[in-house]
Simulated scan of single mutants.
Amino acid sequence: MNLEIADEEARELRIALDIRLREMRNELVHTDDHAYRADLRRSLERLEKIAQKVGGSGPG
């Protein structure tokens, strides 16, 4: 699947992804539920890959 978006849209998407990734990392640190932690980690890894494709500073 290919998604064509304008540069401005890509910047907005990257900002949204950065915010969500930061929230997920914080949640990951504070959860004790091992199954939830594993699911969260997999989701986080997928979103980090998407963020790299969109461009920008990378995980942070």
Rank of each mutant, 00 (worst) to 15 (best):
E23L: 02
S57H: 11
D32V: 05
E8F: 06
E23K: 02
R46G: 03
I50S: 04
E4S: 13
R25V: 00
E27N: 13
M24K: 09
R41C: 03
D18P: 01
D7K: 11
K53H: 06
D39V: 02
Y36N: 10
I5K: 05
L47N: 10
L28F: 15
E12S: 06
P59Q: 12
R25I: 01
R25S: 03
P59E: 08
E45T: 13
L40K: 03
R42Q: 12
R14I: 00
L17D: 02
R37I: 02
L13G: 04
E9G: 05
A35D: 15
L44M: 13
R41Y: 12
E12C: 00
L40I: 03
R22H: 13
L13M: 13
A10K: 11
R25H: 10
V29A: 15
P59N: 09
I50C: 07
R37P: 01
L21N: 06
R11E: 06
N2C: 04
E27S: 15
D33K: 13
N2R: 14
L3D: 05
L40A: 04
A16V: 01
H34S: 14
A51K: 03
L3V: 15
Y36S: 06
H30D: 15
H34G: 07
R42F: 08
R11I: 02
A6N: 08
L28V: 05
Y36G: 12
E9A: 14
I19N: 08
H34C: 05
L13F: 06
K49T: 05
A10V: 00
G55R: 05
I5M: 15
N26Y: 04
A35F: 12
R20F: 00
R42V: 01
L3Q: 12
L28R: 14
D32K: 12
R42D: 15
P59W: 06
G58Q: 03
S43E: 15
R46K: 11
E8M: 02
A16G: 05
E48I: 07
N2E: 12
Q52N: 06
E4A: 09
E12D: 12
N26G: 15
L3Y: 13
D7W: 04
V54W: 01
M1L: 11
R41M: 13
R20Y: 01
A16F: 02
R20P: 00
D7M: 05
E12P: 00
D39M: 10
Q52W: 10
R46W: 02
L21S: 10
G60F: 02
L28T: 07
I19A: 08
E27D: 14
E45M: 08
E8V: 05
L17H: 07
D32F: 00
G56D: 04
H30Y: 14
Y36I: 03
D39C: 04
V54T: 04
D33F: 07
G55S: 08
H34M: 12
I5E: 05
S43Q: 14
E9D: 13
A6W: 01
R41W: 10
N2H: 10
E48G: 05
K53I: 05
R20A: 00
L44K: 07
E9M: 02
E9H: 07
V54A: 12
I50K: 11
T31K: 13
K49Y: 00
R42K: 15
M1P: 05
L21W: 09
R11M: 02
A38M: 09
L3H: 08
P59D: 07
Q52I: 08
L17F: 12
S57Q: 09
P59V: 04
E27Q: 15
